[in-house]
Simulated assay, not measured.
Amino acid sequence: MQRIRVQHDLFDSAEEQKILSRDKPRVGAVVTFVGLMRDFNEGAEVVAMTLEHYPGMTEKALGAIAEEAAQRWDLEDISILHRVGELRPQDPIVFVGVSSRHRGEAFRACEFLIDSLKTRAPFWKKEQTSEGERWVDARVTDDAAARRWAE
């Protein structure tokens, strides 16, 4: 099962985690990741960030990433939630969660999902800093993290 959502609203990560194993007695592991907005980036204080996406295209890309994870590992459930709109420091941005029978597969799949999402999902970020607005470029470290899954 896959749940892919792109939304403006805040999500409840505890509830999202419960959904991954609810009524699934075969589940032996649930691994989740919650990404938060930081207040500092590239040498400047960040007071807000606006996340934009292309509706339909973004969900399709996230679904393809989830499908690839499901093909690589034996998973019971996958959940990807990503927020868009204006966010403030410490706001949750993304929730990625997987459930499986075994912890090793759950850990690897969750890490693969977030690494892939950071480089393959069409999101655009504009930060509002103390020095003005700026678009955020992809990070070299994100590209390196995603490349290791191709090996």
Score class of each variant (00 low, 15 high):
residue 103 R to L: 12
residue 127 E to D: 13
residue 41 N to V: 12
residue 139 R to S: 14
residue 88 R to G: 01
residue 66 A to I: 09
residue 60 K to Q: 15
residue 128 Q to E: 11
residue 18 K to A: 15
residue 124 W to I: 13
residue 150 A to H: 11
residue 31 V to M: 05
residue 139 R to V: 13
residue 23 D to C: 10
residue 18 K to P: 04
residue 89 P to K: 04
residue 24 K to H: 08
residue 80 I to G: 06
residue 94 V to N: 03
residue 32 T to P: 06
residue 5 R to W: 03
residue 14 A to M: 02
residue 20 L to P: 04
residue 10 L to Y: 04
residue 86 E to L: 12
residue 102 H to R: 10
residue 121 A to N: 04
residue 93 I to Q: 02
residue 107 F to V: 14
residue 75 L to F: 07
residue 126 K to E: 15
residue 102 H to G: 13
residue 47 V to S: 12
residue 36 L to P: 00
residue 107 F to D: 01
residue 127 E to M: 05
residue 82 H to R: 05
residue 65 I to E: 00
residue 76 E to I: 10
residue 97 G to I: 10
residue 100 S to Y: 02
residue 79 S to Q: 07
residue 64 A to G: 08
residue 1 M to W: 00
residue 118 K to V: 12
residue 42 E to L: 07
residue 17 Q to E: 05
residue 46 V to D: 04
residue 124 W to P: 12
residue 31 V to E: 02
residue 101 R to G: 15
residue 4 I to M: 03
residue 75 L to Q: 00
residue 99 S to T: 11
residue 116 S to Y: 01
residue 129 T to W: 00
residue 116 S to M: 13
residue 138 A to K: 09
residue 105 E to H: 08
residue 53 H to M: 07
residue 130 S to F: 00
residue 51 L to Q: 07
residue 55 P to K: 08
residue 13 S to L: 00
residue 4 I to Q: 04
residue 53 H to Y: 09
residue 108 R to C: 13
residue 3 R to S: 11
residue 56 G to S: 04
residue 102 H to F: 13
residue 123 F to V: 10
residue 83 R to Y: 10
residue 97 G to P: 09
residue 128 Q to P: 01
residue 45 E to C: 06
residue 147 R to N: 12
residue 65 I to G: 01
residue 72 R to C: 10
residue 100 S to H: 01
residue 120 R to G: 12
residue 144 A to K: 13
residue 4 I to R: 05
residue 108 R to E: 14
residue 94 V to R: 00
residue 46 V to P: 01
residue 113 L to Q: 06
residue 75 L to M: 08
residue 104 G to F: 04
residue 65 I to H: 00
residue 44 A to E: 15
residue 126 K to D: 05
residue 12 D to G: 07
residue 141 T to G: 02
residue 109 A to M: 09
residue 4 I to K: 03
residue 47 V to Q: 08
residue 145 A to V: 12
residue 113 L to P: 02
residue 131 E to P: 06
residue 144 A to M: 09
residue 88 R to H: 10
residue 7 Q to Y: 07
residue 12 D to I: 11
residue 30 V to F: 04
residue 20 L to Y: 02
residue 64 A to I: 05
residue 3 R to Y: 08
residue 117 L to T: 05
residue 117 L to F: 10
residue 57 M to D: 01
residue 21 S to I: 07
residue 146 A to H: 09
residue 23 D to Y: 07
